[in-house]
Design a protein around this nucleic acid. Structure first.
Lengths: 373, 373
DNA sequence: CTGTTAGCGCTTTCAC
DNA sequence: GTGAAAGCGCTAACAG
């Protein structure tokens, strides 16, 4: 195969300067249409692809976006990444994966993140399920580095952020159980230091309140999102005196719901006959457990997609901004709209997937709230 | 936060040339220990991290490695990527994810791959589960671009390649069933155009032969690795006349085994009482299905790790090579060992996880064959 | 052992 | 509209 072409080769072949080729490649407006076309034809013929590395250096910001993922053992991570990849595939950007593995990469905290910033390989960072690293991500944001968080955040802050509408999703799940006649509905929470856990809990409370049912603290137990903690929670709930036990459980994650199923199986509790069960997440395996799990589906792929889009728009916006900073009399300086720097926080609607585990017979109810703050 | 430092800043602070700083950063041997230490101290203090982009450009090969993944819907992909990320985390390399989504990126074929090569962002490519793209990956390899394939290949070729020992794994699974007394053991194959499927089939045959049992073609049906095709295969097998039905099934993937379980449940076939079942892959959910699935576990993370290591060593080796190509009288030219260019094909051992679905009562038998060709 | 000198391939002023 | 020139931040080749 022929030697890799450079922009210089193309310029030569087209009989123009490198600058012009560059202009065409970057879709600048000021190029003679016929010249543009000729250059594009040659680029096509030669299969020329400009060097991302060199372009990044010269442009002073790369077309790479970093994606920070926690352990891949969370089942939604692949889905989200998939959405991210899909959105990025539509752009000239590429995706650099930074995974916070337990061992490698220091203590999975600031080090990695500082390194990401410092090596300035990527032009922005998408942080998926930031648990502890959240605070570091927030710091980056405060330094003005483009950052978007997906699906969680520890602390309230003004970091751009995508998530499902956890509260509404939970509300609908519990409301569904209430409609089915349940009155003693327990909730297995996620870790309460996570914002999403608190939101789901809020939704749970709100639904009960709407039915005029007071929240019974003995029916609310904290879990860790994992199956095991779901089992333990079930254990706790079923140690309650006879009449105080729940007739339904709303678990804040599907995995914890699986734990409940396992516990129920061991103890001869029939689902849904003796206990109705609803999970949260809508991971694919929930359709295949016995009994199939009713659950609140989060639009993970869509969250990934939206996150990527938002980040890229931030990156490009940041660049426009920067371009105008020099005080010299830019000709079109007035073109710069103040471009509201407002907080971007996007909530995506969840949908309730009704399956056998809650004892209802409907097929699928879909909510449709979608709000952008 | 202070402006990002450049290598020039460090050189200035240390009172040496940029070249010297560069030498220290790149661990070249020829630097005065005290100078080295001083530079390192300053680098540390200033939190200096060199620009990967600039370094890549100057060095003419980046420290990025591309990872080509198929749909994330294959459950092992995250595991493999996780291993890859872990291994890469130990090196100065970073991981660029190229995902062949169904929609984006053209037809998921040559285009992406050519683009990867042309944009020369990455120094090498790790291709995970190459299905159709395999031939393109092979092409890259023929052009001399460093490439490693993980866990499959369509055509025999000399592309460096990591996989589980599919044949041996299958052998052990079937042997286990034979030991349990089964004589009519069916096999649900993966797509036969995949090498791994053929290997698993080979293992199946070999085990039967070792027991003096002829392979009965009516007991071998081809599936597509997915649950649904497992169900269909079960359907086919149970449509056989009474006496010809299998008493055990060895499915070439866990997902297909799940399909068998679903079919069995629907048709009142008890597992393991009426039918023993063994899967292949050892994905984590197999421990939690009912009944828990006996399966051949592939060391996915390890495969990812080994693949990354192999690729990086190839990249660095290629560079040493290239450095010697210029015919000018390199002083140490004799240092270049011919460095056997031999085919690198690594098989990793699988392990048989014995659970309830096969009707045995052992806990776990582990095989230990590991060969490097 | 260390400094100097050229670039890597592209983008970006700034003239024309 | 287009070209020439000057780098981006780093590494590599060659002297010393």
């Amino acid at each position: 195969m022929a030697r890799k072409r450079t922009i210089g080769d193309i310029a030569l072949l087209a009989g123009v300067s490198k600058a012009t080729v560059s202009r065409v490649l970057n879709q600048k407006p000021d190029v003679d249409p016929s010249t543009r076309e000729r250059i594009l034809r040659i680029v096509e013929e030669e299969g020329f692809v400009p060097s991302l590395t060199a372009a990044g250096l010269a442009r002073r910001h790369s077309h790479l976006i970093g994606v920070l993922v926690p352990s891949f053992t969370w089942p939604m991570v692949p889905d989200i990444v998939c959405g991210v990849a899909e959105a990025i595939g539509l752009t000239p950007y590429e995706l650099v994966l930074y995974s916070i593995n337990d061992k490698t990469r220091a203590d999975g905290k600031g080090d990695v993140i500082d390194h990401i910033l410092a090596s300035d390989l990527v032009a922005g960072l998408l942080s998926i399920l930031p648990g502890l690293p959240a605070k570091h991500v927030i710091r980056l944001h405060q330094y003005g580095f483009p950052v978007v968080m997906i699906d969680d955040r520890e602390l309230p802050s003004d970091v751009p952020w995508i998530s499902a509408d956890n509260q509404q999703g939970a509300y609908e799940a519990v409301y569904h159980l209430l409609k089915l006649g349940h009155r003693r509905i327990a909730h297995i929470q996620g870790p309460v230091d996570l914002y999403c856990s608190r939101q789901r809990y809020q939704g749970y409370c709100r639904a009960l309140e709407d039915y005029g049912i007071p929240v019974d603290p003995t029916l609310v137990v904290e879990g860790l999102f994992r199956r095991k903690s779901g089992m333990e929670a079930a254990q706790k709930l079923f140690s309650l005196p006879q009449g105080q036990r729940p007739t339904a459980i709303f678990a804040a994650s599907d995995d914890m719901a699986y734990g409940v199923i396992a516990y129920a199986e061991e103890h001869g509790i029939r689902i849904p006959d003796d206990l109705a069960l609803v999970g949260f997440d809508g991971i694919s395996s929930s359709a295949h457990v016995r009994p199939p799990l009713t659950t609140v589906k989060q639009p993970f792929q869509e969250m990934g997609r939206q996150g990527a889009k938002l980040l890229i728009s931030m990156i490009e916006h940041a660049h426009r901004q920067r371009a105008y900073i020099p005080p010299g009399a830019g000709k079109h300086a007035t073109l710069l709209q103040p471009e509201d720097e407002q907080v971007q926080q996007i909530h995506l609607a969840t949908s309730l997937l009704v399956r056998a585990s809650c004892g209802a017979r409907q097929s699928q109810a879909v909510s449709s709230i979608e709000q952008v703050t």
